[in-house]
Every structure is written in C-alpha cells, then in structure tokens.
C-alpha cells in the first residue's frame, strides 16, 4: 500500500479522512498519493531535526509567562529562589517543561518542606495554572540557554495503528526490563533503599509516566534519548496506562501485589470460610 511509508500524517485528522475515502477509489488514491508526497516532503526534515512530533508545545505567550511568574514567586520561590536560581531547593535553570509539569501536575510540588519526600497528591494548581508555571520556567531555561526535555507526547497523538505507532507489546517489553524491577510488573510500586517509597503507577496519566521516564524524578534514574526513542517512551506510557485501566481478567486484583496478598486471601478468606463451615457442620465437642 502506498500509505505504508508515510505514517507521519496519520495522526492528523484531515489526512485521515482523505485516506478513508482513498480506500474507496483509485482516483482518490492518486490524489492522496500526491498529497502525501507533499506532506512527506514537508514533514521529513522536521522529523529528522528536533522531535516536533513527540513533544507537546509549551506556551511562549508573554501573558502566560507573566502569570506563571506570579504563581512561581508566590508558591515556589521560597525554596527554588526568585528567578528559579535555587535556594534551599535546587535551581530550575535547565530542568525543562517535562520536569515542571510532572512535579506540579502530580501534586508532588509545591512541597511543604524541602526535606520532605515528594509524594503524589491532588494537584495544587489548575491545569491552566500548571501550563502557566511550565511556560514561565521554560522561558527562564530558554533565557539561560539550557532548555531541558519538553513534555513528551504520548500515544494519543497517534490515532491509527501503523509502523510508527508504538504497540502495547513494545511497551510491555520495555516496561518489564526497565521499570518492573522498581514499580512491580503490575505497576503497583514497591520500596527503595533508605526509606524511599516507590509509587504506584496506577494513578498516573500517560503523560506523567512519559515525563517521569525522561526526567528521572530522583531517586528514580532517568532514561534519556540515547536509551529510549520518543516512540519507545510513548509505548511505555501507553502500556502503563493500559495496565492501570484494563480490567483484571481473573477477577478482583487484590492490590496487584502478587503472592503475598494472595496468600493472605487464601488463609483468611479461603481457609477462614471453611473453618466457619466446619464449625457449622461439625460439633463443638
């Protein structure tokens, strides 16, 4: 099929519609081929350069940056310093939008004390405010000349299945080799040394997962572009999202912690019920 090598366009609605019609007749097919050629020649260099496609654009509107500046000064600057240059908490001069969006949208920031372990909370800011803070910090980073990783786009950007779109299977393999050792194969979390709690991934959105992979919110290691391509990050995020939303085929998931809760259920409920039954059937003696 002539469409195969041009998946770049797949996630764009207008082309999708054309493509559907294209399957109807050869005439349309030629038209689409011409259109796709045009798109290819336009999108090709963009793909080879900066990862346009797999990054969510950050607002550069002065209004947003200014609003973000106000919010930052009010809620963040006491630790991160005015202008994000760092104080009792690290400077944010090269962290990039992904890190800011991750920490703020998961409610890990703002933190009461810089010594506390940041854990997931209900976000303190509205999505709009978060976008404004991200815009502000991004502007600071860009001005400093060290922009960090952008907010990764996830598989939702990829409307149709195709060779370019990550699959669940790809995400599953990457997750099991790189993430499961800490977060559990079922994404329910665990325990790191020195009292660091490894969070469950079941409440996180796909975007937050992708951000965490790229950013490496310490004590978690980071996984840079040399290790995972953007598509691979999207695949992991997609799989984790699937993991936490897909229904449990076997019934109740009992915390998804594996054999320990299973043994608990077997002893307390399984044997427990049978002891009560035995008590009702047998004599007290």
């Amino acid at each position: 099929m002539s469409q195969a090598p041009v998946p770049v366009a797949r996630w764009r609605r207008p082309f999708e519609a054309i493509r559907r019609r294209a399957l109807g007749g050869p005439l349309a097919l030629i038209g689409v081929a011409v259109a796709l050629f045009a798109v290819l020649s336009w999108a090709g260099p963009a793909q080879a350069g900066t990862p346009v496609r797999w990054t969510v654009p950050v607002s550069t509107k002065p209004a947003d940056i200014k609003a973000g500046n106000v919010l930052f000064d009010l809620h963040c600057s006491s630790c991160h310093g005015m202008g994000a240059v760092g104080a009792s908490a690290p400077a944010l001069l090269s962290v990039g939008p992904a890190a800011v969006d991750f920490f703020v949208s998961t409610g890990r920031m703002p933190l009461n004390s810089p010594k506390a372990q940041p854990v997931r909370h209900r976000p303190y800011f509205s999505p709009k405010q978060i976008a404004q803070i991200v815009a502000y910090v991004n502007a600071v980073d860009v001005a400093h000349g060290t922009p960090g990783p952008g907010i990764p786009a996830v598989v939702a950007a990829c409307k149709k299945q195709g060779p370019e779109c990550p699959t669940l299977s790809e995400g599953d393999q990457l997750f099991l080799l790189n993430c499961a050792q800490c977060h559990d194969a079922s994404g329910s979390g665990g325990m790191l040394s020195n009292g660091y709690v490894i969070p469950s991934l079941r409440a996180a959105t796909a975007t937050q997962i992708a951000e965490a992979v790229r950013v490496g919110p310490r004590p978690m290691p980071n996984f840079g572009p040399g290790q995972f391509t953007d598509q691979q990050v999207a695949a992991i995020a997609d799989y984790v999202h699937w993991l936490s939303t897909a229904p449990d085929r076997g019934g109740l998931g009992i915390a998804h912690f594996g054999p320990v809760p299973e043994g608990f259920v077997a002893i307390i409920f399984g044997l427990g019920i049978l002891l009560v039954v035995s008590r009702l059937i047998g004599n007290r003696g």
Partner: peptide
C-alpha cells in the same frame, strides 16, 4: 536475581528479591 533497583540519591543498586543493597 537481577539487581536493578537504582537509588540515584544514594547511588545504590538494590535487589528486588531479598533487598541486598
């Protein structure tokens, strides 16, 4: 077991089976 929990803050590798650090 495959040792691969990595605590970046303390630069420690931890084994998920018996928590050797």
């Amino acid at each position: 077991c495959a040792v691969s929990l990595f605590n970046v803050l303390s630069m420690q590798l931890i084994c998920p089976c018996h928590q050797s650090t």
